[in-house]
């Protein structure tokens, strides 16, 4: 059920937020020390309230200060979201090349996605939405967690090119109800946290324009994925908070392709992400046994 999907997504983000919260107090303290002579954070945030993008005034100042600190960890390349930051350029390389080909854009352009409407489902702090905006796309970022949206908005407002991103605290299902469609729909590292992948994929399909594209990335339900994405990443390396992923909820590439096909989407290209521990970087490869990304287009109905 769609409702379950949302709940699950919320739970996932809450887990992230909890881990972020524990670091929050520390960072707050050090900030206060170094800025002893400058205005206190609460005062500063009042000033920021004049900004039309910022949070409604019903929220307490100290709550806002908390968001700002969490925003720091969303965007702290050494923080809890480090794996996502490291993986991001690799995901974008795949998205750039597939979308440029599909929409016949100049791959040497600095803004190849100019004029494309893209939705980032489960945008979190906006780690994917911002680069997409810099590449010229008109981006809508949606996330079920209101806090994430606030954080994403706060960070995006820092740069004029990303301040155009429209962030909404909503779900893919609600966007479908509103009748919105997009040239490209992104759902990266989201589907494994969703209770009913089929319903979720249906929504993604409904959001995609007839000649649009859908990009989904997730983790394979393989033994290697169990060893690396859960045992290594959560328990040994502590990259991710324990319990971030449940192996049984993972989908294999075949299953994903089947589900997408039933919702009227055809997977055209698939690539795997491989981590090189020596360079600390992710590479695109044809090994889809752990992390993989799929590019899909709508099946054209001739009827």
């Amino acid at each position: 059920m769609a409702f379950n999907a949302t709940i699950n997504a919320i739970l996932r983000h809450c887990r992230f937020l909890n881990s972020a919260n524990s670091t929050l107090h520390l960072t707050n303290n050090t900030r206060c020390f170094s800025h002893a002579s400058s205005p206190s954070p609460s005062q500063s945030f009042k000033a920021n309230d004049k900004d039309p993008h910022s949070a409604p005034s019903s929220l307490k100042d100290n709550e806002l200060a908390k968001f700002a600190a969490i925003s720091d960890t969303w965007w702290d390349s050494e923080g809890p979201f480090k794996p996502l930051h490291l993986m991001n350029p690799t995901r974008l390389a795949f998205i750039r090349s597939t979308l440029c080909r599909h929409f016949k854009r100049d791959p040497y352009s600095t803004r190849p996605f100019e004029g494309l409407k893209i939705v980032d489902v489960g945008c979190g702090g906006g780690i994917l939405s911002e680069p997409l905006a810099r590449l010229g796309a008109t981006v809508t970022g949606v996330d079920a967690v209101e806090k994430n949206i606030k954080i994403a908005q706060l960070h995006a407002d820092l740069d004029p090119t990303t301040s155009t991103i429209e962030y909404c605290c909503t779900t893919a299902e609600k966007l479908v109800e509103e009748g919105r469609t997009f040239d490209a729909v992104m759902a990266l590292e989201v589907i494994e946290h969703v209770a009913n992948p089929e319903e979720f994929c249906k929504s993604l399909a409904a959001l995609t324009n007839p000649d649009g594209a859908t990009v989904i990335s997730t983790i394979n339900r393989s033994m290697r994925a169990y060893a690396t994405a859960i045992v290594a990443a959560e328990y040994i390396l502590h990259w991710l908070p324990k319990g971030t992923h449940q192996w049984s909820t993972f989908l294999t590439p075949e299953e994903l392709a089947m589900i997408l096909h039933r919702t009227g989407i055809n997977v055209e290209e698939m690539a795997g992400f491989v981590y090189n521990p020596l360079t600390g970087r992710w590479l695109l490869s044809d090994d889809i046994s752990v992390n993989f990304i799929a590019f899909a287009t709508k099946i054209q109905n001739t009827i």
Partner: peptide, 22 residues
């Protein structure tokens, strides 16, 4: 280094827009 100081910066120097925070 952080968005906290960004906000402060915007407070102390009126002429700079939030865009310069980054």
């Amino acid at each position: 280094r952080s968005s906290m100081s960004v906000v402060e910066e915007n407070m102390s120097s009126r002429e700079s827009s939030p865009a310069q925070g980054q």
